[in-house]
Write a protein that binds this DNA or RNA. Structure first.
Length: 589
RNA sequence: GUCCCCGUAGCUCAGUGGAUAGAGCACCGGUUUCCUAAACCGGGGGUCGCAGGUUCGAGUCCUGCCGGGGAUACCA
């Protein structure tokens, strides 16, 4: 069948009685650091003890016993490794067939599909949506796509923070300053500034004029009560401004091509949470402590989990309990994932432990996908200090940079483009840059947001990835004569006019494409989109090298067909990766 | 105090216990009568924070320390 299978069979045969001592052969196989060394390598260290021989001697012995068969073109000992060289044409043919008949995708799927809920984004209404929030959306969406590609039944869920004291602060500011005009554009940013100014005012008053501070806070609480109890005037303002935000968020999700299957709202689960607290209090799972209600998690080493404040008010934790119950009971999810910043680690450890105490067995299948903040080169982003970059500002900046770049080039491809085509292409490059910029860094690492770097579309960026796809489309467009489709495979792997398929850039690219199923599996188990992002960058890099080194359309047959098939296969695999990260595609740029 | 995350090239980052630790940016030099030069090739640049330990083998695993960030019940 495939090269890897052939290698495993050959090794088993050559090892004979030593197979058991060698351990898991499939797991042992590695990729040599350089393509000239071969495509797969078997390290002989584990055998050294049993055979009481030096690894290089064992490698030489094994290499001598294995004859090239099937897709194995050459076997060679190199130091302590047995290196296997694949027959590149057979390998390419195999990849084409598997892409066509679905085996390639089947291999990428899990054998334990589950119903998974992935909660992400969780934007607060009445607050600025800034670059930091973008990381969450893009990360969560990538996970949704990856879990789907793996064959899971995924429910993408959003959870809007549309209630509480912060919303009241914003509304209070608006009500006490009727002279302020509401802008037509970027209303979320304006509402956010109302919230910030109210917060700052209270903080200042607490310093300078404690008495006024107290009355101000009291009137903010009045607004909150009005929201809760349905004061017509306050309620109307609340509903209107809330809707501005929901519309604004939807516009952002549309631009990013992010979709949710279900929306939760804080305003919905607030009361339910309190009911759960009463319930669990009656059962003795929750207890009173210092006037408040807690779930005592000292046994788990997590301290006290506060579920109701001393004044009877609910908190995040209270609502999360109700939310979790809905997820388990109404949606029947087997696994539940929460994409939330890493500063909430303790919160989620407590939440999951509390759910376990409440009797939810599936609490063990809850997972907090933590990620670090987005930082500016100058430090932490703070919406209160006004140092946060609103998403639309970033978007405009990147768009300007990319459009300027494109307009200065004057490419033939773009000669007949109308305004729509221009706008659409620019927008796709922008989205690719934004998403890739957020995803190519490991979750646990801070993303440093440097506008200079983000507006330079060269090197390790989304634009670089799209560029490869545009070149691929260009080749396919310009090919004259017979153009193979993947289903045709590679009929003849032989040499022609002294040139055969198997240039080192071809073999390196091909070998890399073959690892996709494994890469997707790793993204699922680690919840790290960076795994796929790195794969795509490497694939693109390898394609660019191949492209620069090997003429495709002008190559003699059958080399031309083989190269075109490599181009087709590269496109097919790249598209799978783009889909998983939610990156847009282009066929010209 | 305790717990968690990060520390790899000037900067930003990859690196699934295996071979000479790799990219991108920046800097220097080269490549276009040829499929898109947003590309490709070459060059300089490293005590993988420090010290021990486990292992045939450690950037990777364990312990301790140093530096940065975060969490640590009545904020959200």
């Amino acid at each position: 069948m495939g090269f890897r299978a052939d290698v495993l069979r050959a090794l088993e045969g050559a090892l004979g009685a030593d197979v058991a001592a060698a351990g898991d052969l499939d797991a042992a196989l590695t990729t040599p650091p350089k393509i000239e060394m071969g495509d797969l390598a078997f390290p002989c260290f584990a055998l050294a003890k049993v055979k009481k021989k030096a690894p290089p001697a064992i490698a030489a012995e094994l290499a001598a016993t294995i004859a090239p068969t099937g897709a194995i073109a050459k076997v060679q000992a190199l130091g302590p490794f047995v290196n296997f060289h694949a027959d590149p044409a057979k390998q390419l043919d195999d990849l084409c067939q598997r892409l066509v008949d679905g085996r390639f995708d089947a291999e990428a799927r899990t054998d334990a599909p589950a119903r998974v809920m992935i909660e992400f984004s969780q934007p607060n209404t009445h607050k600025l949506f800034h670059v930091g929030h973008l990381r969450n959306v893009v990360l969560g969406d990538a996970l949704v796509r990856a879990f789907r590609a793996r064959g899971h039944d995924v429910v993408a869920a959003n959870y809007y923070g549309d209630f509480g004291i912060d919303v009241a602060k914003c509304l209070w500011w608006i009500r006490t300053r009727p002279e302020e005009t509401v802008p037509v554009e970027h209303r979320i940013a304006w509402l956010g500034s109302c919230y910030v100014r109210a917060t700052q005012l209270v903080a200042e008053l607490e310093e300078s004029d404690p008495e006024t501070a107290t009355t101000t806070k009291a009137s903010i609480r009045e607004v909150l009560r009005g929201m809760e109890e349905g004061d017509p005037e306050i309620r109307a303002l609340y509903e209107e401004t809330r809707q501005w935000c929901l519309d604004g968020f939807q516009a952002i999700y549309d631009q990013l091509d992010v979709r949710f299957d279900h929306d939760f709202f804080e305003s919905q689960v607030e009361h339910e949470g309190q009911a759960i607290v009463d319930e669990q209090l009656a059962k003795g799972v929750f207890v009173e402590s210092q006037g408040a209600i807690i779930c005592d998690l000292t046994e788990e080493g997590l301290g006290a989990c506060l579920v109701r404040k001393g004044d009877g008010a609910s908190l995040y934790m209270t609502w999360d309990l109700a939310l979790a119950r809905r997820k388990f009971d109404d949606f029947d999810v087997e696994r539940s994932m929460y994409v939330v910043g890493s500063e909430q680690r303790h919160h989620f450890q407590q939440l999951f432990a509390t759910l376990a105490r409440m009797g939810y067995e599936r609490a063990k299948d809850c997972r907090h996908v933590a990620y670090e903040l987005v930082m500016l080169p100058s430090g932490k982003m703070s919406s209160r200090k006004g140092t946060a970059i609103p998403l639309h500002v970033l978007w405009d900046t990147v768009r300007d940079a990319i459009r300027t770049r494109m307009e200065s080039e004057g490419r033939d491809e773009r000669a007949g483009w109308d305004a729509t085509r221009w706008n659409e292409t620019v927008e796709r490059v922008v989205v690719a840059c934004l998403k890739y910029g957020m995803l190519h860094v490991t979750n646990n690492r801070r993303v440093v947001f440097d506008v200079e770097a983000w507006t330079n579309p060269e090197g390790d960026t989304g634009a670089y990835l799209l560029y490869a796809l545009a070149r691929i489309a260009g080749i396919q467009r310009k090919a004259e004569g017979p153009v193979p489709t993947l289903a045709d495979g590679v009929q003849d792997g032989g040499a022609s006019e002294g040139e055969a398929f198997g240039h080192e850039t071809e073999r390196a690219l091909l070998g890399h494409l073959l690892t996709w199923p494994d890469v997707l599996a790793r993204m699922e188990s680690t919840c790290e989109p960076a795994v796929v992002a790195t794969f795509l960058f490497d694939a693109t890099k390898l394609f660019s090298r191949f492209y620069a080194a090997c003429p495709i359309l002008k190559a003699p047959e059958p080399l031309r067909t083989a190269r075109l098939q490599l181009v087709n296969a590269t496109e097919a695999v790249l598209r799978r990766g783009f889909e998983v990260l939610g990156l847009p595609v282009v066929d010209a740029m």
